[in-house]
Design a protein around this nucleic acid. Structure first.
Lengths: 205, 205
DNA sequence: GATACTTTCTAACAATCGTTTGGTAGAGTT
DNA sequence: AACTCTACCAAACGATTGTTAGAAAGTATC
């Protein structure tokens, strides 16, 4: 590892870190005001620099959301895949997936909000966001086969409409990102526990 | 009722009808592409007229969303108030509120989507949208007292975190607007029934 | 202390936005 | 047939948008 090599690595790492910083603040602003309603000058303001300076780090406003969303989705699916590969029963898998989802919200709150609010519009306006639809498709596939397996294993009620249950579970897990604040009254794992109690056992006495 | 009077009433009614038509198409476009990302020219296109022509009917783009959202909220709260005034038990009231919510989604799908996606941003940018926060407050008040009463009456489990249950129920009812299509496989009342079965009894066998 | 490189600023750009103005086609009234 | 009113069109407006180019400040290297 030559000095020269370490230099380029050092500056490359510093540059990546700065990118991550800027993306984090961009995600916060996008989540708070909406992607389309947010100007690059507002993002730059929040980061303490001027609008044009963002273009030293990023190609465009679009590539900022792109990186925000793809980073989040990659990490989330990595966690999901670990759970799915563990070979658990359907019910245990559902529990683990829900826990991982709330941990994802805990780590990427702003990105989740942006994903929820903007992914549909983004996928409709540009080819570069088709991976959002692909992720959506994987989501449906995962949940549907999980629910079907759960019914076969006798873990879930057989009298419910599964596509409806799927949408119900999928949506309710992620909307929590809209009110969740890290460091609040309840930790992510506590919320997951309560959420699972509601979905699995219901709220009636 | 003089002829003169009937004339003005006739043209006033025709004007109101045209407004309603335009607001319906505007709501669809806002729901599909997001309010901020939608241009008034796109709304006008969908209505078959030119951008500037919208300003014969409306003061501004802002007043269009305003009218879309306030119309929806007024009708929804009227339905809610009828239920709340019926003097039912907590569980029966919850069931009736959920049914009314899905009927609201059935009638005002686009408006509900806009309300869900944009109300937070709108309330933050202009004083005229403070009624959205007020509605939000009423929502929380209604659900929390309903849930507390349900626990006292022995209808709901006492071991759950009620603020969490509130957010859970509130969100899950409305997110359905994102995928629901009138005239689809399931009618609004069927969805309400299945939804109540999930929330009250849970999905486990 | 000169040099090279990184990061930000300054200042503008073309495009697009919501909105306004003045005109016009057409239906209804007299 | 002249007039009025309604609903729209045609064309532009200033402001703001995302984006770019070149200069300048800051930092590290020798």
């Amino acid at each position: 590892m030559s000095p020269r090599r370490r230099d380029t690595e050092g500056t490359a790492a510093a540059r990546a870190e700065r990118r991550a910083e800027l993306l984090a603040t961009a995600a916060e602003v996008f989540a708070a005001k909406g992607y389309a309603a947010t100007t690059v000058r507002q993002v730059a303001d929040a980061a303490g620099i001027l609008g044009g300076s963002l273009y030293y780090h990023f190609d465009s406003k679009e590539s900022m959301v792109d990186e925000i969303l793809s980073t989040f989705l990659n990490e989330m699916w990595a966690a999901y895949d670990r759970v799915l590969a563990a070979g658990l029963g359907a019910r245990e898998t559902v529990e683990a997936i829900v826990v991982e989802s709330f941990r994802s919200i805990d780590r990427h709150r702003a990105a989740v909000v942006v994903y929820q609010n903007e992914s549909r519009h983004l996928a409709a306006t540009s080819e570069r966001f088709t991976y959002l639809l692909e992720s959506h498709r994987r989501f449906e596939e995962m949940w549907m086969s999980l629910l079907e397996r759960g019914v076969r294993e006798g873990a879930f009620r057989p009298d419910l409409d599964l596509p409806l249950v799927y949408r119900f579970v999928r949506d309710t897990v992620w909307v929590a990102a809209n009110w969740y604040r890290p460091g609040g009254r309840l930790a992510a794992d506590d919320i997951a526990k309560q959420y699972l109690a509601m979905v699995l056992e219901g709220i009636q006495a």
